[in-house]
Nucleic acid binder design. Structure first.
Lengths: 244, 244
DNA sequence: TGTACATCAGTGAACGCGCGTTCACTGATGTAC
DNA sequence: TGTACATCAGTGAACGCGCGTTCACTGATGTAC
């Protein structure tokens, strides 16, 4: 592990600057406006120079998407890592699921254009690599949500969870999934997790894309209420399961 | 109401053809690829001719968005209007809320690019008119969902619905909203409706934008399960309300 | 019914713009001896 | 320590492309008398 040479350090710094400029560009004009020429302009370089750092525009976009996913996952993990006593006022006695979900929401609102990049219309001419970085960060995030939704349940409680209408075929499919989470979730719990993800993501997406603007600042409250309801639901299902 | 002249009929037909060509283009290459020139090419006209029908690109986009919203709202209404006996096999005894929601989902899956147009990244350079056609169609759609979620409840049952954590300020705000629905929903029910919209939309958005592809065909089942859970939840809240 | 004029759909030519990418080059940095 | 060569970051010039929009025009359709 040799000390990096001057060239290597410069190269790393320049790469970082390019990415920062690209993110600045996205933040200002949206992901669709991202262009190599605009990035170069921002940095006071010529476009061609960028080709020493990225083979083409798609490669740059791929890195930007990866970074955005990681940032979002980091934000969710960070939110949940703050000890209750140090949380914002009013959040101290909120369940950790709510805290995690609100970390997701807060990142999306703070970085709307990068959120668009991840969850909006795919960039024109950009084809996402299959099973690429996306999957990785999504898995990290869903691991957090899985922990906060189901983490304190015993295997017995988990096993007893029921949801409406899960076909045997789907149960088998879910049980055979290598993809997600801790591996200890039975099919109904996994289905519940997907459903919760939909709920969480849906509210954020509607808000960030401006479809619930008429609610104004109260959107935060609808969101928190929904997340609390999510937890209520899971608890209700485990209570029932225990024969209460 | 005079008979339209030849010119008027031709104009109407040409306008229709332009819109159809534009929608074809969106369906094939996505909303971001929509361009006047491509539409003209598709029709075998020159670009300039389009300016006799739309003053500029934005105007065309506005009409396309309006039509898409209307189409979606129509699809939801139509789904719910089919008598149970004539529904697809397995759907006959599904609650109408599920049928409406699946109408929404089905339209989105059948018209992914138009769905992108409505709920994806806003088109570059296009600024949506405030309180425009969007609001209109959204209201229509949410009226359907309101009816199917709450339509058969008495005012007393509605009034007794409670949800976690609704601040007095938010209650007042919701009660003062001129915007949505029948006007008979108390604040908690409205909040529940928004939450349900998030759930519904979130699952569809994740599916159409390819984030839950790993579930394959089973996405339909997660969706239906979630919608059934939605209804269960509302019923649970009204039962509790009745003191049962 | 015929004529003069207005309206309108369409074309040809052109504008200026921003884009991704390639090529041949220069000068600085790094490396082997 | 000095020298010869390789690597690399950056530039200047240029490519071909598609875009929205404007202008001056022609010929068909519609209308008033």
């Amino acid at each position: 592990m040799a000390t990096p040479t001057l060239r290597e350090r410069r190269r790393a710094a320049a790469t970082q600057e390019i990415l920062d400029a690209a993110e600045r560009q996205i933040a200002e004009s949206g992901p669709a406006a991202l262009s190599l020429r605009a990035v170069a302009r921002d940095l006071g370089m010529t476009v061609q120079a960028l080709y020493h750092y990225f083979p083409n525009r798609d490669a740059l976009v791929t890195v930007l998407i990866t970074r955005a996913y990681d940032d979002l996952a980091d934000a969710v993990q960070a939110a949940v890592a703050v000890p209750p006593a140090q949380r914002a006022p009013g959040d101290a006695d909120m369940p950790r699921l709510v805290i995690a979900a609100e970390g997701y929401r807060r990142w999306a609102i703070a970085n709307p254009e990068r959120f668009h990049l991840l969850y909006g219309t795919p960039l024109r001419g950009y084809a996402a690599p299959v099973d690429g970085p996306t999957t990785q960060a999504t898995r990290r995030m869903s691991a957090v949500f899985e922990r906060e939704l189901f983490g304190d349940l015993t295997d017995g409680q988990l096993a007893a969870i029921e949801v409406p209408l899960l076909s045997p075929g789907f149960r088998a499919f879910l049980d055979g999934l290598p993809y997600y989470g801790s591996g200890r979730l039975p099919a109904p719990a996994t289905a519940l997790l997907m459903s919760a993800w939909g709920q969480l993501h849906g509210l954020v997406v509607l808000e960030v894309f401006g479809h619930t603007g008429f609610l104004g600042e109260h959107q935060a409250e609808v969101f928190r209420m929904s997340m609390l309801k999510l937890l209520e639901d899971v608890r209700g299902r485990t209570n029932t399961a225990q024969g209460r």
